[in-house]
Amino acid sequence: MNVTYKKLWKLLIDKQITAADIRRATELSSCTMSKLRHDEPVSITVLLKVAAVLDCDISDMCEFEKSSVDR
């Protein structure tokens, strides 16, 4: 399965918050932000920090997609 953070980026646009704002508020590293931008897995702790800042649930920010191998 692959993770996608499309919902996160849409949520940021809807709330008029930049990725830089999230990075500062959560004190995430640039490497972690890069993982989010490239739909790479990050820890639950990271997702919980972002969810707390955005006042949302993890499921509001990401979802899992089946890859062709998983089908």
Rank of each mutant, 00 (worst) to 15 (best):
M33L: 10
A19R: 13
R37M: 10
E40M: 13
I44F: 05
D14T: 09
M1Q: 13
K35P: 05
R23L: 10
D14H: 09
N2D: 15
K7Y: 05
W9C: 03
A19Q: 14
R24P: 11
V3K: 06
P41V: 05
D21R: 00
L8P: 04
I17V: 11
L28W: 03
L28D: 00
I22Y: 00
K7D: 11
L36G: 02
M33H: 04
N2M: 15
A20L: 15
T26C: 06
L47Y: 02
S43L: 02
S34C: 10
L8R: 04
D39I: 02
P41W: 08
C31W: 12
R24V: 13
D39G: 03
S30K: 15
T18C: 10
E27Q: 14
L48H: 09
S29L: 04
A25N: 11
R37W: 10
D14A: 12
K6W: 07
L36F: 06
K49E: 01
S43F: 06
T45V: 09
K6Y: 11
D14N: 13
S34Y: 07
W9S: 08
L36W: 04
T32Q: 06
R23C: 09
H38M: 07
I13K: 15
L48P: 09
M1A: 12
A25E: 09
I13F: 14
V46D: 00
Y5G: 02
I44A: 12
V42W: 08
L28F: 02
S30G: 13
S43N: 00
T45M: 11
I17D: 06
S29P: 08
D21N: 10
T32N: 03
S34N: 11
V3L: 07
A19L: 14
N2A: 14
Q16P: 12
V42D: 06
V42I: 01
I17L: 13
L28Q: 06
M33Y: 02
R23N: 12
A19E: 14
T26N: 05
C31V: 14
T26F: 01
K15D: 09
L28K: 06
W9E: 01
R24E: 15
K15E: 09
K6N: 15
N2Q: 14
E40D: 10
K10F: 14
S43G: 02
K10D: 13
T4D: 10
H38D: 05
A25D: 08
I44D: 14
L11M: 10
D14Y: 04
T18Y: 07
V46P: 05
K7A: 06
